[in-house]
């Protein structure tokens, strides 16, 4: 299939006796947006710092387009654009000056620096901010400068660590659009702890918890996991469970804390229509029916529990 632009093998990092990241292996295909998902302190940033050569792994190796980042850091780093969680901006410079410095640092030919700066500004919507001091820019625009800095040398891989943290909803939407745009030409790794963000932007997703990968698969797999084949139904005059169970395709029925029913059904069946039909006939007082969405926390709990049983990374298959 497609060639891998980045591959990490058995990556581990120890702080004292603690494993911040343990035996993480994955790869990134060309032109793919990979979402790196996990709660705070799960080891997302540590992994990203190791991928970009900012932190030496205790064990394992990272290869960027086949180049080992520990053995040939210069060649490998030239292929990466990195935006850390805390934006590394020199606030005393103007946008133009800063991007010029970033371009020269990343070995853009001096005759081409001006062009590269203009192109990056165009992509990130910074053209009208060229001569403003970075210090005086708003949070959202500073973030754009950070992203511009990461893509200025046209890298193979762009690594963004929590790019939407601390922005307002409009800015978040714009940054997401920008990331999608970038994802068309570059491979992108994106870390976040916001699940909907991953669904919107990424092609593939990895969930990391307590330093180990607990899930990796396509976004469809995750959605499947999240949505499941479940309906959340509320009746004001609930019928007997057996009546619900007799509906075709229904597998299991649970009652939740609010007295709603979670109805799990088999693949390829959608009993919603039948439930509504029966409810109106039987006068059950149906007031709510919707797909049951498992929250991120639930998925984490599910995944970490399964992981404890197997004690290794699992590939979640479609159920």
């Amino acid at each position: 299939m497609t060639e891998a632009t980045l591959s990490a093998v058995d990556l581990s990092r120890q702080f004292g006796d603690n494993f911040a990241v343990k035996d993480v292996s994955f790869h990134l295909n060309k032109g793919e947006v990979l979402g790196f998902l996990g709660p705070n302190g799960a080891g997302k940033s540590t992994t990203m710092r190791m991928l970009t050569g900012n932190l030496a792994p205790t064990q394992g190796c990272v290869k960027i387009c086949g180049i080992d980042i520990i053995e040939n850091p210069k060649e490998a780093k030239a292929l990466i654009g990195y935006l850390p969680e805390i934006r590394p901006l020199y606030k005393e410079f103007t946008v133009n000056e800063f991007l010029g410095i970033a371009a020269r640092f990343h070995k853009v030919k001096s005759s081409y620096v001006h062009k590269a700066v203009e192109a990056a500004k165009d992509k990130c919507g910074l053209a009208h901010m060229s001569n403003r001091l970075i210090e005086n820019l708003s949070n959202g625009y500073q973030q754009r400068v950070g992203i511009a800095q990461a893509i200025i040398h046209n890298p193979e891989i762009v690594i963004l660590d929590e790019p939407t943290v601390g922005l307002d909803p409009i800015q978040i939407r714009e940054i997401r659009k920008l990331i999608k745009e970038i994802g068309k030409k570059h491979s992108v790794i994106l870390s976040t702890h916001i699940l909907p963000e991953v669904e919107m932007v990424c092609d593939r997703v990895q969930i990391i918890d307590k330093g180990s990968l607990v899930f990796h698969g396509s976004i469809e797999d995750l959605k499947q996991h999240r949505l499941g084949n479940k309906l959340l139904v509320g009746f004001s005059k609930p019928p007997a469970l057996t009546k619900l169970k007799s509906i075709k395709g229904v597998e299991r029925i649970e009652k939740d804390e609010q007295g709603m029913f979670v109805i799990k059904f088999k693949d390829k069946y959608l009993p919603a229509e039948e439930i509504v039909d029966l409810a109106s006939k039987g006068g059950w007082g149906l007031y709510h029916i919707a797909p049951h969405v498992t929250s991120l926390e639930d998925i984490f709990v599910q995944l970490t529990q399964v992981q404890n049983l197997d004690n290794q990374t699992i590939e979640v298959k479609k159920t």
């Binding site: 970009t52 900012n54 780093k77 030239a78 990195y82 850390p84 934006r87 020199y90 640092f105 990343h106």
Partner: peptide, 14 residues
């Protein structure tokens, strides 16, 4: 202090 060191470290400079 200003957290800009990663900028230098992730650039291809030794």
């Amino acid at each position: 202090k200003s957290q800009t060191l990663p900028f230098l470290f992730s650039a291809p400079i030794s």
